[in-house]
Design a protein around this nucleic acid. Structure first.
Length: 406
DNA sequence: CTGCCTTTGAAGATT
DNA sequence: AATCTTCAAAGGCAG
């Protein structure tokens, strides 16, 4: 198992202590991964083919997991690394010069006996990113390349609306509201980001097939820009938290990142039937990484299909050094902490059967049942050599065109 | 219009 | 305890 499950009530804070890195072989693997540049395309190609083959094998899932375990086992190694990181921090804060972008977040561990969320005790000046970015992911200076350039500037009243009305709102307001001087508290220079994450890697993980149109510097500079952005918008609940989205099934994704800005805060439909907001899961390390790097990959690879991009990002993720990954694990950990503080009663289960709606109506339950059945069937199909996915076709057709240009 | 694809990781559910 | 399942994001694509 790649992950260490909860590990008790203090998992959020304890995960990193439990991490034990995979040892030396892993290091070699890392090195090899960094040789990615040379082999990546071939790897990706072959892996794409292999995957489709594997997926037809009876133990596709198991194989896949096995591969993953081989490849990463990172949570383990990561945790070990975090130990190191923590020791380096040794004051509770990130001092690591390699990770200067982080210090703007200081959260007490909610699981520590005396931890409190009082603003006074938190030097948190998390500036909420606009564009409906995950509020928690504001911890990470995501690239918003893919967002409309017109959206960065939010109405000033948006900040005013960030008055969280939850019972912890006062305590937590410091996390999400943008204090008058809040911007200045954010260090625009994210030095760990200002350096290419993959200096040795060409875009898409291949050899420079596509000269990047985007100067990396500019793309990174946008991170800091995003940091300067105000809150993304208001949820009907009054919680200025893009993680809370109207329960509209799939659409929630889009609303999560776009509609908050594109559309007015009030939608006629929603007015008619106000629904319980959906609080999204906090993003894990890889999701944070994806969110940050997606735009870059899109720009570099001229790919738009998320499935393909995610594959690339998955490979890049594995190519990251432990330290680099550790940053994201730590960010994710902080996000979980923050999420928990914001929504103490929230559980991942809330978004399970309810079909993503706070209103777990009968239809949603039924849909969920269907979904579950479909998934099972799909797995059976894949086990028995079911039909190939459209994306498999894409991989074979598009991948060579894109990936072969080494 | 809806769901799938694809990735990793967290966490709930199940065995 | 171990394993399985679902959901987070994303956007093109197929039905």
């Amino acid at each position: 198992m790649p992950q260490l499950s909860s590990g008790g009530g203090d998992d959020l804070g304890a995960n990193d202590e439990m991490i034990s890195f995979k040892d030396e072989g892993e290091q070699e693997e890392k090195i090899q991964e960094n040789a990615f540049t040379e082999r990546d395309l071939a790897d990706l190609k072959s892996s794409l083919v292999n995957e489709s083959e594997i997926n037809q094998s009876p133990n596709a899932a198991a194989v896949r997991r096995g591969q993953q375990g081989e490849q990463r086992g990172f949570p383990d190694k990561h945790r070990e690394h975090l130990d190191v990181v923590s020791k380096q921090q040794d004051g509770g804060m990130y001092k690591s010069p390699g990770y200067p972008g982080y210090p703007f977040l200081m959260l007490p561990d909610p699981y520590l006996p005396n931890s409190s969320v009082s603003p006074s005790s938190n030097k948190v000046s998390v500036v909420q990113q606009s564009h409906g970015m995950h509020p928690l992911t504001s911890l990470l200076p995501y690239s918003n390349d893919h967002f409309s350039p017109s959206s960065p500037h939010l109405p000033t009243d948006m900040s005013q609306k960030t008055g969280v009305h939850r019972h912890q709102s006062q305590d937590l307001s410091g996390y999400y509201s943008l204090p008058p001087g809040g911007v200045s508290q954010i260090t625009p220079s994210m030095s760990w980001q200002s350096q290419p994450v993959y200096p040795a890697l060409s875009p898409c993980g291949f050899r420079q097939p596509y000269p990047s149109n985007l100067p990396s510097a500019s793309s990174y500079s946008r991170f800091s820009h995003s940091l300067m952005l105000g809150p993304s918008g208001m949820h009907p609940t009054g919680i200025p938290h893009p993680a809370i989205v109207p329960p509209t099934g799939k659409q929630e994704h889009e609303q999560y990142d776009r509609s908050m800005y594109v559309k007015p805060q009030v939608e006629p439909k929603r007015e008619k039937e106000p629904k319980k907001p959906v609080i999204k899961k906090p993003l894990n390390a890889f999701m944070l990484y994806m969110k940050e790097m997606r735009a870059k990959v899109i720009a570099e690879c001229t790919l738009k299909e998320s499935a393909a991009i995610n594959q690339i990002l998955g490979r890049r993720w594995h190519a990251l050094t432990r330290e680099e990954q550790a940053k994201y694990y730590e960010l994710a950990r902080k996000e979980r902490q923050l999420h928990m503080q914001l929504y103490p009663t929230w559980s991942a289960r809330d978004n399970y059967e309810a079909g993503l709606s706070g209103v777990a109506g009968e239809k949603n339950k039924a849909d969920w049942g269907k979904k579950k059945r479909r998934k099972r069937e799909k797995q059976q199909d894949s086990n028995t050599g079911g039909k190939r996915s459209a994306f498999a076709t894409f991989k074979e057709e598009a991948a060579p065109a894109q990936l072969l240009q080494i």
